[in-house]
Computed example of a mutant assay.
Amino acid sequence: MLHTLQTIALILVSSNFVFAVPQIVPRAVTRFAAFGDSFAAGIGAGQPFTGSGPDSANNAGCGRFDGSFNVKLRDDAKVHAASFDFLACSGATAQDVQNSQLPHLDQSADFITVSMGGNNVGFGDIVNGCVYRFNGIFAPDCDQALNNASTRINNNPDFLDPVTNGLRAITAKAPNAKVYVMGYAKFWNATTTQCDNVSWNYWQTPGATKMTRALRQKMNDLLDAVNNKISTAVQGLNNPRVTFVNYDAYFQNHRFCEGGVNEPQGPNEDRPNMFFFQLNTPVGSVNSFVQPFSPASQYLDWIKAAKTASPNTPVNPIYAGLSTATSASGGLPLWIAKIFHPTSPGHVAISSAISGKIP
């Protein structure tokens, strides 16, 4: 027996026999569907998305950009999606995701991402009321905006129920899909001191709101509360195919008011390490959209046009809770609509966080 094995070994060596090494094939996704709001649409990141799909007619109206983490994830080595349905739409609430985006879902989808809930909270009112105060004395009261958001987060019919219902509907329609549900990242470094005496108000009037550590911490706490509720919704499904992705840690050291940074960002100032847009942050590589801080006269022209078009509609420069039937920015110019949304590097970080969760 030993002689026989030795003979076989000699034959293999002398004949230069080569064993075929199996190739490692990347995980192939048949159909990838991306649901959600402006964070998922990638508004302002890269260039406008022009790809095809079941809702491609709304690419522009929904503010979809090719720098979105969803587009980056589509080409990730772990995904390699054969088909990509970009359904996310800026301004969408959790209810909009279920009512307007879900009908486009193909039940054969085997990979799904979802980012929803932020517009249910009213973060647009917080950004307007506590940070920029675009409407001056007519802007939302900061404390009231914070309290309203906290109330919505903790009131299940406002937040937890719509998020849970949306996820249940998605998983029911595509029962074989792996679903990755996004949280949100905190905007502020709340420990530094250089922002304590700085105002980001659009109109620099006496008594303008200062971005104190206490105020920054309140906004960060709300983001943590949102993430905890979304995580609770995912856990409540008790579905091993649904995974919560908290990418907040990926934004560490890339928030507003980081140490040694003068805020707010000035015109033509390059900040490649910032993961969120400010007013003066250039918009991706879209030359026609690169716009510095707009003069007050242009803003007033926009207000006048908006009121003429909809005289009975309050003008809120930060869209929040809009129906997906409405333009992604509510008629806003992109230099306003993009603020407090992830930049292209921010979307790279989110994509990496999701990829890290994929087996």
Rank of each mutant, 00 (worst) to 15 (best):
W203D: 00
D76S: 14
V234N: 00
N156K: 01
N268V: 12
F86L: 04
A81Q: 06
Y184M: 04
Q298F: 14
V121N: 03
A45F: 05
S150C: 09
K78A: 05
N148F: 06
D221N: 04
F69I: 05
A40S: 11
D110Q: 07
D106I: 11
G67I: 04
R64M: 12
K72R: 14
A40E: 00
H254V: 07
N316A: 10
P240E: 11
V114S: 02
N58H: 07
I137V: 13
T324D: 12
S115K: 06
A305V: 11
G259D: 01
N238S: 08
N246Y: 04
S231I: 01
A149M: 08
L322V: 01
S56G: 11
A40L: 06
T164L: 13
N128K: 09
P206A: 13
F251T: 10
V226I: 09
A92P: 08
G122K: 08
S288E: 15
A320P: 04
M219F: 09
G63N: 13
W203Q: 01
W203F: 06
D221S: 06
H104K: 15
I153D: 03
Y202T: 08
R213F: 13
T50W: 02
V121D: 02
A225N: 04
C62T: 07
D158H: 13
K229N: 09
L105G: 04
D270C: 13
P282N: 14
V114Y: 03
A349F: 11
A249I: 01
K78Q: 06
F289N: 12
P282Y: 11
R152L: 11
G91I: 09
K338I: 02
A337K: 04
C142W: 04
G166Q: 00
C130I: 00
Q252K: 13
N59Y: 00
N70H: 04
N280A: 15
A225F: 02
L222I: 08
N312S: 15
P48L: 15
S294W: 05
G260S: 08
